[in-house]
Nucleic acid binder design. Structure first.
Lengths: 184, 184
DNA sequence: CAACATAGTGATTGGTCAATAACTTTCTCG
DNA sequence: CGAGAAAGTTATTGACCAATCACTATGTTG
């Protein structure tokens, strides 16, 4: 297996592990175990743990953005809204991917608190990417965009907390079971 | 100072430290330093680190719930919505308090992943408290409640990422500066 | 085949951290 | 006063973890 293929495998494993443990709570050994390589080998593929997290953030955000772009392509705001909501619902089937997003947000405040401004800026840029992608397709309507993203963030929290599908809030999100239906 | 007073001081310090570092990323030494006691003394006041986090969660959630209750007291759904939104805006002035909330949500998935179901259940119960408090005052309208909480969660993320007050999303939330204005 | 690159491992280390144990200080009250 | 309780400390330990180092194996190519 080439180093590049391994790097991709590491990133995928990192998303899962970081989603569950957060940045500090995840060991490089756990990531290595999931990939099926020795722990020291990770440091041949990436300079350090921080770089693994950031690479996972790049990967994960790009994937979500592409999902929105594909869904909303060529549609009018109203139809784009429904299509993107549907796309997001599809993403909730992979709890790890969305939980990793939450861990990214949490990590920004941590990074800022210990002066890692570059880290913070990079995650912020990722979120802005997502924001722009949605905003554009919703006709640059700030209110609509805020509603859409707000619902998305609420879904993230419901998913984090593991609420059952019949909870009133899941129902109110029009999302009666993770992996099914749409919201909005 | 009595043990009980110290415990309260520890909880306050814990909210700040956990908000910035997350559960795993926060050391008991950091909490102790902030309180102004020695690190081992924390273990006279609480059985372990986990208990400190949970106590902070109890405290923090109760405070937010009370803010909603006070704000919405005796008002009709529409007025209650505005008053509670205003109250939440007031809370954003203390970034640590809201970031701790996010860390709580993140910690649930971690706890679930390593089988600490009691921990998960307790945080879930806290969120449900908040949900019920809001839901009731918004006339038990699921849609309204989801919108309200969704906006709240979006605000949390904007706060976590440290977006400047003139970002379109802050504006769309009707919340042009942390510590000022209302949303909704 | 020899030289070199690429992929990968095992052993180790220096630092960090939650938690324990043993001890000190200060207040209170019979 | 003196004895006990309550508040608090210093020193320490065992476990864990990111990162380094030295080494092995497996092609590949001139």
């Amino acid at each position: 297996m080439t180093a590049q293929e391994r790097r991709t495998a590491v990133i995928r494993a990192a998303v899962t592990e970081f989603a569950r443990g957060g940045y500090a709570g995840t060991t490089t050994a756990a990531i290595a175990r999931r990939v099926g390589v020795s722990q020291p080998y990770l440091f041949r593929l990436f300079p350090d743990k921080r770089a693994i997290f950031l690479a996972a953030a790049d990967h994960c955000t790009a994937e979500i953005r592409r999902a929105f772009e594909r869904a909303g392509e060529g549609l009018e705001p109203r139809a784009a809204h429904d299509a993107m909501a549907e796309a997001y619902t599809g993403l909730t089937a992979d709890r790890d991917k969305l939980m990793f997003q939450m861990q990214m947000y949490a990590a920004v405040y941590t990074a800022e608190s210990d002066g890692d401004e570059e880290f913070a800026a990079r995650i912020r840029a990722h979120w802005n990417e997502l924001f722009e992608a949605v905003h554009l397709r919703l006709g640059a309507d700030g209110r609509e965009t805020a509603d859409f993203l707000g619902t998305g963030m609420l879904i993230n929290v419901l998913l984090a907390l593991g609420f059952p599908a019949d909870h009133p809030l899941w129902v109110a999100c029009g999302h009666d079971h993770p992996g099914k239906r749409r919201y909005g």
